[in-house]
Each structure stands twice: as C-alpha cells, then as structure tokens.
Computed example of a mutant assay.
Amino acid sequence: MEKQNLLEVRDLHVSFKTYNGEVQAVRGVSFDVKKGETVAIVGESGCGKSVTSQTIMRLIPQPPGWIKSGEILFDGQDLTKLSEKQMEAVRGKEIAMIFQDPMTSLNPTMTVGKQIMEGLIKHQNLGKDQARERALEMLRLVGIPSPERRINQYPHQFSGGMRQRAMIAIALACAPKLLIADEPTTALDVTIQAQILDLMNDLKEKLETSTILITHDLGVVAETADRVVVMYAGKVIETGTVDEIFYRPRHPYTWGLMGSMPRLDLSREKELTPILGTPPDLLSPPKGCPFAGRCKYAMKICKQQMPETTSLQESGSHQVACWLEHPMAPAVEPPVEMVGGGSK
C-alpha cells in the first residue's frame, strides 16, 4: 500500500527585491514528501535549496522576500494562506527545522534545557516539571551523556557535535510530523557526522517522522535518503529514488554532480571532474534550460525553451527536465565514471 503525501509543494515561485532588481530564487518548484519518508534536496550553493525549505516554514523575511505564487500543502492545508499567528502554531509542533549552524541558532543566554522546554510548554501545554522530564528524555534520546548535568548548561559549554544533537532534541521535542534538516552535518568532523546520520536514521524509524534533508553532500544523501530532488538555478531538474539518481541519472547536471564526488573505486590517477562555468544570474534567468550555458550536450533549443518534465518510468518516480529525453534528440549516455556505481 502506497503511503500518503504529507507535504505537496506545487509550482512554488519565491523572489527577493534587491537594489539591482528582482532575484527569482525559486522558479516553479514542485515535489512531494510521503509520510515516514526522507527526501534529500541537492544542488550547488545558491540553487534555491534553503530558500525552498525556509519558505515551507514561512521563515523568509517579507520584505525583501515574497511568495509570488504556488501552493505548500501540508496535511491538506495550504501554508501560504495562513496568517503569521496560525503559522506559529504549526512551527515547532507540526513542522520543525534543524538549522545549518547550531551555534548561531541556539540562544547563548538560555540553558539548553530551557530551550527544549520552551516549545513543550508552548505547544504541549506541559507544566515546568513535566517539560523538564521530557527535555531530559530528549537529551537521552539524542545520545547526550549525563543529561541531568547537561540540561543546566549553556550552548558554549557543548561541543559542536553535542550542539547539533541539542538542536535535534529541540526540533523533535514536540514530535513533529515533518523535520527539515538544513545541512545538519556541514560543520562536523566525519566521526561526529556519522553519529548524527545514524541518530537521524534511528529517530526516523522510532518516531516515523518525515524528513526533508537539504545538503550538497552526496555521501550524506546515500546514507539517509529515500528519494532525491536535484535543483539548479531555482528549478527542479531531476527527481528519483536514491538508486535511480545514483545509478541511472539522466540530466547532464546530475552527471556533473556525480563526477565531482570523490570515489574510492576509481584509480588514484583519475581526477575529479569539475562542472565548468558558473550558474546563471537569477536577476535575469535564461528563458531556456538554466544549465545550457555549462552543458557540453546543449542544443539550440536548450537555450530557447525550458524542457518539459519527462517521466522515465510508469511509476513516475524518476523524472527529468532535459531536451535529451526528446525522441528527436541524439542518443547520449552518461560517462561511466560520473555515475555512482557504474551502469546498473
């Protein structure tokens, strides 16, 4: 039996007003998140990943940002239509977020325990004693040692890995239906990173929380995600399961991402393949495919018109927006070294 969609983002457009004009940060993004599923959103810096996630939480500053059009359906309710007061009841309780840098996200003037208790008192209507017990339970759940002592400490007394665990404890305290993790392991060393990823996988199974994982680290994606959304220049250019994206990618930009990822199964002499060029200026985005200027397979039509999204399977799980999928386009296969495990 197929799981129901918890979140449906439909044709979302988000822009920012600047002195130079309108920056079109998100341009027609659509994707779903099913109940209990982890969806990774990947792409270069500036592709619109974080803006999309912050828009779901309605955290983009307005002005200069504004939602031009589109729907964000969460449990059937359009979040774009809610007032700020109504959104306050959703944030923390229904949807929670782990931010990129825990040191700047945690309040340095409050103990970690009080920061966990704050949401519990507000959203769960718990008394202080009950909230404290629940906070201790959350600290144990995320693997922080000596929680009875740590609950009274401040963020600066925690290591980087423990601060990230504390952020996860705050986010999960009210048992949200959807967790958005924005680069949750960026500032951590590889040992702590592995522990955080294991923790997120364990909590997903225990609490059945749906997760949106924002990252540029494809190793993290392979470890945690069920499905992948590839973004470029504010658009979704390919979506699929982890296996489809890693072993059967169809968009040249996705090939480039794979080619720039370190691989242990290739010889030492084999250098990483960078994606040459720079992303387009979103003050005046191209009318055609945004990747056309950097794509060695680009055809004339690529620069003139944005391709439609093509479903590569009857299930519709693997979709790509690329003119190479057109019946009249030349047959092009991805370079073997750019695909996660070779052709499978």
Rank of each mutant, 00 (worst) to 15 (best):
K68C: 06
K68I: 07
S69W: 11
S69G: 13
S69N: 14
G70F: 02
E71T: 05
E71C: 02
E71W: 06
L73S: 04
F74I: 00
F74R: 02
D75Y: 05
G76K: 09
Q77D: 08
Q77P: 10
Q77E: 15
D78V: 03
D78A: 06
L79N: 06
L79A: 01
T80H: 04
K81T: 14
K81Y: 05
L82P: 07
S83A: 02
E84T: 07
K85D: 13
K85A: 04
K85N: 12
Q86Y: 06
Q86N: 10
Q86L: 01
Q86D: 12
M87D: 08
E88F: 08
E88N: 13
A89Q: 14
A89Y: 02
V90K: 00
R91S: 08
G92S: 00
G92Q: 02
G92F: 02
K93I: 04
K93T: 09
K93Y: 15
E94R: 15
E94M: 13
E94L: 11
I95R: 04
A96M: 02
M97S: 02
M97Q: 02
I98H: 00
I98E: 00
F99P: 02
F99L: 01
F99N: 02
Q100T: 00
Q100N: 05
D101T: 03
P102Y: 01
M103N: 08
M103P: 03
S105P: 07
S105I: 00
S105F: 00
S105Q: 07
L106M: 05
N107W: 11
N107R: 08
P108T: 03
T109V: 15
T109D: 03
T109Y: 13
T109A: 12
T109H: 11
M110N: 13
M110L: 15
T111P: 07
T111M: 06
V112E: 05
V112T: 10
Q115P: 08
I116T: 01
M117D: 10
M117W: 04
M117A: 10
E118G: 03
E118H: 04
G119D: 04
L120K: 04
I121N: 05
I121H: 01
K122A: 14
K122C: 12
H123V: 09
H123R: 07
H123Y: 07
H123G: 08
Q124R: 15
N125H: 15
N125E: 15
N125R: 15
L126Y: 12
L126K: 12
L126N: 10
G127F: 05
D129K: 15
Q130I: 05
Q130R: 13
Q130M: 14
A131D: 11
A131P: 13
A131N: 11
A131F: 14
A131H: 11
A131V: 11
R132C: 06
R132T: 12
R132P: 12
E133D: 15
E133S: 15
R134F: 07
R134Y: 11
R134D: 08
R134L: 09
A135T: 07
A135R: 10
A135Y: 09
L136V: 08
E137H: 14
M138W: 06
M138V: 06
M138F: 10
L139D: 05
L139N: 06
L139F: 10
R140V: 10
L141F: 12
V142Y: 03
V142K: 07
V142H: 01
V142P: 09
G143R: 10
G143L: 01
G143T: 01
G143A: 10
I144C: 00
P145R: 12
P145G: 11
P145V: 11
P145D: 13
S146H: 13
S146Q: 11
P147I: 10
E148R: 13
E148F: 01
E148C: 04
